[in-house]
């Protein structure tokens, strides 16, 4: 995540403070948002903007002791509540590492918290799954529960149709539980 975040308004790049230093937020409780309406705050008990965002400088994040950190240092902020996860992340047992498995390699990059989790709604969204296996009858592609394709072009298929009609009624299971 870029630090600080940018948005583009009418073709002009803007920082957070571009607005927030002119228009001050009126309510610290922040129950209703007039702007940033795309933000869906579903972070459990953590339901106040200023729990994380610095109320004075919106380009910084605030820690519980009053110190501020940049957006690039998000893990320090998250660690205040998610101690065990942060510990795992530091060890590399939580989160995702890209580039290389070699620990001292320059190519290795560990994703930070907000690269996977939406900080406002950190729980993962339900995910669309890809098609299931269709490997049961080699060459004979029976439509699987997840919509496998019947391959009419396979030489085996052409041959089987000509030679052995019983083949197509081969009593294969689709693995589904009765």
């Amino acid at each position: 995540m870029a630090d600080p975040p940018h948005i583009t308004i009418d073709g002009v790049p803007q920082n957070c403070n571009g607005c927030h230093q002119i228009f001050h937020s009126n309510s610290p409780a922040g129950a209703t948002l007039n702007y940033h309406q795309e933000i869906r705050l579903q972070h459990g008990l953590n339901n106040r903007c200023v729990n994380c965002h610095d109320s004075q400088n919106r380009e910084r994040l605030t820690l519980r002791d009053g110190a501020t950190v940049s957006f690039a240092e998000t893990p320090q902020l998250c660690a205040q509540c998610h101690g065990t996860v942060f510990r795992d992340w530091e060890r590399g047992t939580h989160g995702k590492t890209l580039g290389s498995w070699i620990t001292n390699s320059d190519a290795q990059r560990r994703l930070s918290c907000t690269e996977c989790h939406n900080p406002h709604a950190p729980r993962y969204e339900p995910y669309k799954l890809l098609s299931g296996p269709n490997t049961l009858r080699m060459g004979e592609q029976v439509a699987s529960p997840t919509g496998g394709v019947r391959d009419e072009q396979s030489p085996l298929q052409r041959w089987l149709r000509g030679i052995d009609p019983k083949q197509r009624d081969h009593p294969i299971t689709n693995g589904a539980r009765p």
Binding site: R91, G92, T93, H94, K96, G99, S100, W101, Y127
Partner: peptide, 30 residues
């Protein structure tokens, strides 16, 4: 030195891969 394809694609970071002879590697930590 690269990651296997399945590790690289995993959207949740559930897959971890590394050198177990390196005590600092993620798999050693696990």
């Amino acid at each position: 030195g690269r990651m296997p394809a399945c590790v690289e694609i995993c959207p949740t970071g559930a897959r971890k891969f590394g050198n177990v002879l390196d005590p600092k590697s993620e798999v050693s930590e696990i």
